[in-house]
Design a protein around this nucleic acid. Structure first.
Lengths: 215, 215
DNA sequence: ACCTGAACACCGTTCAAGT
DNA sequence: ACCTGAACACCGTTCAAGT
């Protein structure tokens, strides 16, 4: 029963630390570099050792999504207005996306109705339960916000990666017609914090105007 | 110079027909079944033959996205109100997503600032150019709609696949706590056409209320 | 008991040989 | 000239052998 001192190099190898090593690789090298073999190498163990903690690749990917969603600020703040809660989640989501642009594709591709995304939605629901918002209203309100935020962050993540790679000479759309290039430049404006603020206010105004929730 | 009758089996093998075969596989079996080898088998040719038409897998995926976006109704209808144009695109997008739920993940993951998504955005911009909407206003308006629609269709596609698989006994989230199951059920409401209508009207109301465009 | 190398069935892609 | 099988460097995962 007593725990003897462990002479192992990897004292803290666990399902979470495996996911964390995976996220580290994705952040540093990119999503295409993520493999069970590369994660094992990162941790300095044999590939098969990972299977003691993580059942398969799909689980690893979901665990990484869990780590990312845990970075989003969904604390309950008593007395906060429902729309201020959404604003807080939105800007926090934006910062997470900018910290992990390569990994965000995993969030966008993750099953919405399963763990860990479902727990994330449940936490947001709790955030609003204290604000006299019933379940039906919450679903109506959050389905719009969630769709908008997910779509926005997909664009933001791609923009962030793109602008990071902009050192590499001509962009791939440099060959596109002039009016498309202008359009692309306009859409790339998504990077600024103000772009999210403006777009989010449109959505929140719509929720207010549609009488779904008090504005 | 004269074109002799071609005794070949695959008279019309082209970059587009390769993409079409790929889409066929994704629709029938699922995204994980898509590989250059499976597409070649579908077409009854050797794997390497594909490289004569499609330079690499990435191009194949983008071509499939192109086929999907071509199914979306972006025709110009003279005199149509800007918001009716958006409604038409939205419902058409919904039908495309329901025809190709497994393939939609490719659309969501496709680079937004490159072909073929960029051309798609350009076509929508043209649709509005005739309606006295200037470039700046269009970008502001479309960035909200595009983010919302993309996020919505990601959820819709997942719901469609999920409900298609519902024959298979218990769902994966059946082990989740009761309140999460209820939440999942509410969010799965996304499947109905009315769900899109309601959410879209919220966004359009927001655009109207924010004074960006005439409502 | 714990860890992991070899092996298997796949990938995308290159290269050289087939017709 | 066109087509493609063999080969290479990867995958995720199973299984059996190593300590």
């Amino acid at each position: 029963m007593s725990r003897p001192g462990r002479p192992r190099v990897h004292t803290h190898l666990s399902r979470e630390s495996v996911a964390r090593a995976g996220l580290e690789i994705v952040d540093r090298v990119g999503l295409e570099a993520l493999s069970l073999r590369s994660v094992a190498a990162e941790l300095g163990v044999g590939t098969m050792t990972l299977y003691a903690h993580t059942p398969d690749r799909q689980t690893l990917e979901r665990d990484i999504v869990g780590l990312l969603l845990d970075e989003v600020d969904v604390r309950e703040i008593p007395g906060e207005r429902w729309d201020d809660s959404i604003r807080r989640v939105a800007f926090s989501l934006r910062e997470m996306t900018l910290r992990h642009p390569h990994a965000f594709a995993l969030v966008a591709a993750a099953p919405v109705f399963e763990s860990p995304v479902l727990e994330y939605a449940a936490r947001i629901r709790q955030l609003h339960a204290r604000q006299d918002i019933d379940g039906e209203t919450f679903v109506a309100m959050w389905s719009v916000c969630d769709a908008f935020l997910t779509g926005f962050m997909v664009m933001l993540a791609q923009s962030a990666i793109r602008s990071r790679e902009m050192t590499a000479a001509a962009s791939a759309s440099a060959t596109a017609p002039g009016h498309e290039q202008e359009l692309a430049r306009g859409l790339a404006d998504v990077l600024s914090k103000d772009a999210l603020r403006r777009d989010l206010e449109v959505v929140l105004a719509g929720l207010g105007a549609s009488g779904l929730v008090d504005s």
